Simulated assay, not measured.
Amino acid sequence: MTSDDRGSTSVSMDEEPRSSHAGEPVGDDVVSGDGEHRTRRGKRKQLPLWQETILLLGVALVLAVVIKTFFVQAFYIPSESMEPGLILNDRILIEKVSYWGDEAPGRGDVVVFKDPGGWLPPMDSAGPTNPVAKVMAKIGLYPTGGHLVKRVIGVAGDTIECCDDRGRLIVNGQPLVEGAYVKRGGAACNGPMPTNSACDEKWSVGPIPDGHIFVMGDNRSRSADSSQKMCQSDETECVPGDEFVPVDLVVGKVFVLLWPADRFRWDTRPATFEDVPDPAP
């Protein structure tokens, strides 16, 4: 017997291929010991439940870290400095897409930024202490400490003055109409110095250096912000320039008040900032 005579199962070119049994998918042909053709069906190996659970948790963790790093992050309001719009313990979401690349915060944006140094008391800088909360904070599911939320009043090149005869801040010569979101808290103007709620002492700042912003809380008389960091005439240890926040410290822009649910709203830039002219060259 030649090698060509030994039980070959190949199909010649002029033979018709066999069809599968009714209702069965066609698979690879094999020959059983009795010469009967059978179809071998491929089976996909399924992971045990505990392995699938670990895999899904791992994927969810990676997605959470990616989302926090590049897109959205949760924070809470730690003080009364942004009243009346944002109050103590409100939960907010910030988005980071607007500041990708060379884009920088704009006038009127409400931003979250890292403490430039000495703006927050140690308690507010510590962050969560519970181990579970620490892990959740790492992946963006729980607010972290050491951050502030304020409104951008001026950007690089701007000059800000306080105030006109109606108590309004002036940016590049344009008064800001801020009645819709500012709480004066007993102050006579929208830009009180920390010890001058009567607003008798006028002040100005700028031009703001490149790569920096000037920020203020909406609750103007109860906010540790850029106006509080400005050097006053009787101070001897104040460092000029500490009132400006480096843009590199900005984490993102507030775009939604998430909780409590009955106060849910989207946050947008006030129209008054659209009238501010570019700084003079």
Rank of each mutant, 00 (worst) to 15 (best):
V135T: 10
V135K: 02
V135P: 04
M136G: 05
A137Y: 02
K138Y: 13
K138C: 11
K138L: 14
I139H: 04
I139A: 04
Y142V: 02
P143Y: 02
P143E: 03
P143G: 04
P143D: 03
P143H: 01
G146T: 11
V149I: 15
V149E: 09
K150I: 07
K150M: 07
R151P: 02
R151M: 04
V152T: 01
V152C: 02
V152G: 01
V152Q: 01
V152S: 01
I153R: 02
I153W: 07
I153Y: 05
I153S: 00
G154P: 10
G154A: 03
V155E: 08
V155N: 00
V155C: 05
A156H: 04
A156S: 14
G157K: 07
D158H: 09
D158S: 03
T159Q: 11
T159G: 00
I160T: 01
E161L: 01
E161K: 13
C162I: 00
D164I: 00
D165I: 00
R166Q: 14
R166F: 01
R166K: 14
G167S: 03
G167Q: 03
R168I: 00
R168V: 00
R168S: 01
V171I: 06
N172L: 09
G173K: 08
Q174C: 03
Q174N: 09
P175D: 05
P175I: 08
V177H: 14
E178P: 06
E178W: 10
E178H: 10
E178M: 12
A180Y: 06
Y181P: 06
Y181T: 11
V182S: 04
V182D: 01
V182I: 15
K183N: 13
K183T: 15
R184D: 06
R184V: 11
R184L: 14
G186H: 09
G186W: 05
G186P: 09
G186L: 10
A187D: 03
A188D: 11
C189V: 05
C189W: 02
N190A: 14
N190K: 03
N190H: 13
N190I: 00
G191V: 04
P192I: 05
P192Y: 08
P192C: 10
M193P: 00
M193A: 11
M193K: 07
M193V: 02
T195N: 14
N196G: 13
N196E: 14
S197A: 15
S197I: 14
S197D: 15
A198G: 15
A198M: 15
C199T: 11
C199G: 10
C199Y: 09
C199A: 12
C199W: 08
D200M: 13
K202M: 09
K202D: 07
K202R: 14
K202H: 13
W203F: 09
W203K: 06
S204I: 01
S204T: 09
V205R: 08
P207N: 10
P207Q: 10
I208P: 05
I208A: 03
P209E: 06
D210N: 15
D210Q: 15
D210H: 14
D210M: 14
D210F: 11
G211C: 13
G211F: 13
G211K: 13
G211N: 12
H212N: 15
H212L: 13
F214H: 08
